[in-house]
Design a protein around this nucleic acid. Structure first.
Lengths: 349, 349
DNA sequence: TTGTAGGCGTTATCAT
DNA sequence: ATGATAACGCCTACAA
């Protein structure tokens, strides 16, 4: 039984020879074909196990014309948003006998296309893309590749599942307004992202409804990560009339912003309220614990997989879905400070 | 050119027919075979592009007998430790024309074996396992599967790359001792993990060297995550003589511990110093910023891939490697409080 | 320079 | 109930 790491894999023929039957019999015995004698089935299975036979999926997929494997394209492995999404997708896939392979584009648009192509090269049954850098290109890619693709958080694409970003943002900003904040900033992501645009829209909508005039300088761009959050917050503090409320594109950005605020001697939530988006597990453990907007990440993955399975099954008429977001109030947001008047930036503690 | 999502993939034969040549000519033209006329090569390539032909890797791998793809088995997608490791492995793989597919075991030992099996079913060229739940089983699995497997942080396995956990732990505990701490706890992981055992060993070694007696009740187990860190810290606070220094298996545990400490009204680092392990990006943004032990995660992934590539190349005599860990002092650790005497737990602020 | 034929490991069809 | 045979898509001698 002992074989070194470089040995060739044992094939169905090897098992057949060892068990004294034909390859087709082995195939049937292994997949529990009904018309096969109990005795042969047991013998074949025993031999196969003893030889540690493992069927070749490339070979099998060649003849069956499907792989029962789906590809999950992700931007960064590190992306904390991803985890539950992947879990949701995986569990749903498992129920239907599908496995999942993930591949990361490491934040490169070029690599993302390569990943999709690679999934097709492997003839995977379908693809889910989360956190795409080129979401708008999928309308074309869809024609180029014959495999079904489902996007997460890209509502303009016909096969997609999306958090209601605008509604989530509205809850967040509304929350700040009700706490008495009037100077409210939005720290955005690089603007190409649809989810970012929709959050911005929600932000503006609340200002409108509440008769708060929109100040362009209160929208600054981060990078979706902590570093960007820091520099965005610093920009805001340098303003002649800095905001008391800061709504951030995501939790990572919020964490960075809070760090910068603290370093500038500004207490959160006493001097500034900060609200994130994503409800990362981490946020609860921060001090102060993060007020944030929860995305139903597990369901996002689950629904994406369900849609994908429909597409794989040949069903074409699926509706893009929107899932609700929910404000989670913790301690990084509080009543707006009583303002005598605004002070110029730079007055550190 | 327009095809719906359910269309069959275009094969080399389709291209051949369209270009008016034989399939083998297409194959040669596409892979830049030298003995082919410039004109035919260009025409074939154009036609292939127009038809969006993408070669089938399952078919190709069947004949070439290698997939140029390696599998990365991970415990959790969320694991923040993973990210840089995966990057290191990916970049090194890319240099040598290999792609990487990741699959998560979601914390289940059973699933982990399935993942490895699935990698073999796909006849991937090799496997890297990070954060294994069944690291000790790989000595057997190695015989069962013909594909080369490299482990990260499992030094008993012959093909592995490991952080010097004992040395890292020693630095951490030594740091606490030098700050004046004498009652130092270790919050461990479920004990089966080798990296955990080695960190524990490092912890004990320092106590020994410094003539500090080992108190069994100061070693409590977490779960490698924030929740476990919280309950571990609560256990420690309930002790008649609680520790002033707490060395944690990892940063997530440390973050949980700090949270519990804070909730009990104990300031960090004034009342308790906490040291983590992993140097997660997050740690720097916490308050207080986390003192921790850095693992060379990128190099861990890179070296693992290098070893794997050697194995794939048929080279059998590779040495397990150990990479150095490095203490990063930030603000969650500080001088031990001046103790008149120890007080019973429960005296909250 | 190009075409033909065989085979990679499976499964499915058709015999027996 | 089992075996022989063809086919999946591709590559690679070998032939022309």
């Amino acid at each position: 039984m002992r074989r070194s790491a470089a040995t060739k894999s044992v094939s169905i023929k090897d098992v057949a020879r060892e068990a004294g039957v034909s390859p087709s019999t082995v195939s049937r015995a292994l997949q529990g074909h009904p018309r096969i004698s109990r005795e042969v089935r047991q013998r074949v299975r025993r031999v196969a196990r003893e030889m540690s036979y493992v069927p070749s999926l490339p070979a099998r997929s060649l003849v069956t014309q499907h792989t029962s494997t789906i590809g999950l394209a992700i931007r960064y492995v590190a992306d904390p948003f991803l985890s539950r999404v992947a879990e949701g997708a995986e569990e749903e896939a498992g129920k239907h006998g599908y496995a999942i392979f993930m591949s990361s584009s490491n934040g490169s648009a070029e690599r993302e296309e390569e990943v999709i192509r690679s999934f097709h090269e492997w003839r995977l049954s379908g693809v889910i893309v989360v956190g795409s850098l080129i979401d708008t290109r999928y309308l074309e890619l869809r024609e180029e590749y014959p495999l079904p693709i489902v996007l997460i958080n890209c509502p303009i694409y016909p096969y997609s599942v999306t958090t209601d970003n605008a509604a989530g943002a509205k809850q967040a900003v509304e929350h700040l307004v009700q706490l008495g904040h009037r100077d409210i900033a939005y720290v955005s992501n690089p603007l190409s992202h649809l989810s970012n645009l929709n959050r911005l829209a929600g932000y503006q909508a609340v200002l409108n409804e509440r008769g708060i005039s929109f100040r362009e300088e209160l929208v600054v761009t981060g990078d979706g990560d902590m570093l960007g959050g820091m520099s965005a917050a610093m920009q805001l503090l340098a303003l002649p009339q800095p905001p008391t409320g800061i709504f951030c594109f995501n939790d990572l950005t919020a964490i960075g912003a809070i760090r910068a605020l603290n370093e500038a001697g500004r207490a959160v939530p006493q001097a500034h309220s900060v609200v994130g988006f994503d409800n990362l597990a981490m946020g609860e453990y921060f001090s102060p614990p993060l007020t944030t907007v929860d995305q139903p990440r597990y369901r996002l993955g689950q629904q994406a997989m369900r849609i994908l399975l429909k597409l794989i099954g040949g069903q074409e008429e699926v509706e893009p879905e929107t899932l609700p977001a929910e404000l989670i109030v913790r301690e990084s947001s509080g009543p707006a400070p009583i303002t005598g008047r605004y002070r110029k930036g730079g007055d550190r503690a």
